[in-house]
Simulated scan of single mutants.
Amino acid sequence: MNIVAIFPLYLPWRRAGAEVMTHALLRGLADAGHSVQVLVIPEVRRDSVLPLEEVCLDGIQIKVCTIAQLRAIFDGSRSIDVVISQLGASTTASELARSHQAKYIEVVHGDDPRAYRNLIACRPDLTIFNTRLLRDFFMTHCGRSEVFHPPVSPDIQRTHKGSHVTLVNLREDKGVGLFRSMAEQLPDIPFLGVVGGYGIQETDNFPENVTIQNHTPDMRSDVWSRTGVLLMPSKSESYGMVALEAAASGIPVVSNMLAGVREAMGPSAIYLHLKDLEAWRSQISRLTIDPEYEREAGRRALARSEYIHHKHLSELTQTIHAIESLA
Rank of each mutant, 00 (worst) to 15 (best):
Leu70Gln: 02
His100Tyr: 14
Ser94Pro: 08
Ala32Gly: 09
Thr22Ser: 15
Thr92Asp: 15
Ala18Leu: 12
Ile67Trp: 00
Ala93Asp: 00
Ala18Asp: 10
Ala97Pro: 04
Ala72Tyr: 11
Ala102Asp: 09
Leu96Val: 10
Ile105Tyr: 00
Gln101Ala: 15
Ile73Thr: 13
Leu70Asn: 04
Ser79Thr: 15
Met21Tyr: 06
Gly28Gln: 08
Arg27Asn: 08
Ser77Leu: 10
Ser35Asp: 12
Leu9Ser: 13
Ser77Phe: 01
Val36Ser: 05
Met21Gln: 14
Gly76Cys: 02
Val82Leu: 13
Arg78Gln: 05
Ser90Tyr: 01
Ile67Cys: 13
Ile6Lys: 15
Leu96Asp: 00
Val38Leu: 03
Leu9Asn: 11
Val49Gln: 11
Tyr104Arg: 13
Leu39Val: 02
Thr66Ala: 04
Asp47Ala: 15
Leu29Gly: 14
Arg45Trp: 01
Ala32Val: 02
Glu19Ser: 05
Ser99Met: 08
Glu53His: 10
Arg27Tyr: 04
Arg98Ile: 02
Phe74Ser: 03
His23Thr: 07
Arg15Pro: 00
Pro8Met: 01
Thr91Leu: 11
Ile41Cys: 11
His23Met: 12
Phe7Glu: 13
Gly76Val: 02
Arg71Ser: 07
Val40Glu: 01
Ser35Tyr: 07
Arg78Asn: 12
Thr66Ser: 12
Val20Ile: 12
Val83Cys: 14
Pro8Arg: 10
Val20Gly: 00
Arg71Met: 12
Arg78Phe: 01
Ala72Gln: 05
Arg45Gln: 10
Val40Trp: 14
